[in-house]
Simulated scan of single mutants.
Amino acid sequence: MTQSPHDHDPQRRRLLRRAATVATTTAGAGVAAAGGLPAAAQAAPGDSLIMGTTNDAGVQTTTLNASEGIAALSLNNTEGVALRLAPSSNLYPQVLESEVGTLAVDDQGDLFVRAGTDSDDGATNGWAWTSEWATMSVAMRPVRVLDTRDPDLRRRIVAGGANLDPATGKLKPGGPIVVALDEYVQNGYAMKGNVTVVGMTGPGFLTVWGGGTKPTASTVNWWTSGQILSNFLFTRLGASGAFRNVITIQATSSPTHVIVDLTSLLVGHPSQIVSGQA
């Protein structure tokens, strides 16, 4: 899968600082692997490439040096487009306008692909869709992570506890609470679940978000006292102090009890889900 170059977001992923090492090692592995193929092109370390011979390169690494702006390797294909490995130093805009079949690693360590056919209408530009880019929604056994009516289910509140009414436990309007989900996920992107409000004393609304400045949007709204209302919740996870997977909750206009049920987490890989939680 590829993604439009306009969606490229290097902040979502860590830098791959060993790209050059990986590239040279891969090139060497390709020469060694070719030794098992009939009539493969081979060369002993230091020798010229000789067609139709076999050779075991052992632990030797093959490095291809290219002039700036020139593809380090071009593999022609009589049945289709050529495969070209291009240098990253001139990735933009040259590769965006290059021949179909071009691959290059950009300055964030991501693999750029010029894919499609020889037709201009069929060619596309994008980045290889890997776990560095992708997120997946991992369903969990539904679990209640917050219920302000229950002191035990208020234990995940890691900031803003003073914004709960000490007598009733209701969330007072105007002050946020921060709820940590670190026991369920490591460095997650977002959560899905349900948020419920109950016991409000008048009209108001609730906002749930990851962290930082409070957004102007509302997550659930109510128009009078004594209601029980629920809404689907899908929000990014933020960070607060030592906690890396938090949601922030704030009521406006009216005190209310808040219940949050967790049903799914968005991660880059299932291993980010804490063992036994999915």
Rank of each mutant, 00 (worst) to 15 (best):
T24H: 01
T24A: 05
T25G: 12
T26P: 07
G28S: 03
V31R: 07
A32Y: 11
A33Q: 12
A34P: 08
G35I: 03
P38E: 07
P38H: 04
P38A: 15
Q42H: 07
Q42V: 01
A44W: 00
P45K: 10
P45Q: 00
G46K: 07
D47K: 12
I50E: 12
I50D: 00
I50L: 12
G52N: 06
N55V: 14
N55G: 06
G58P: 07
G58C: 00
V59L: 15
V59D: 15
V59I: 10
V59G: 14
Q60E: 15
Q60T: 13
T61H: 00
T63C: 09
L64G: 02
L64F: 12
G69I: 06
I70M: 09
A72R: 08
A72S: 14
L73W: 03
N76I: 08
N77V: 00
T78M: 02
L83T: 15
P87L: 02
P87N: 02
S88H: 13
N90H: 10
Y92A: 15
Y92D: 11
V95C: 01
V95N: 01
E97A: 13
S98W: 00
S98M: 02
T102K: 02
D107K: 11
D107M: 00
D110N: 11
L111M: 11
F112H: 03
R114N: 07
S119T: 13
D120A: 13
D120K: 13
G122N: 11
G122D: 12
G122E: 08
G126D: 05
A128N: 10
A128C: 05
W129I: 05
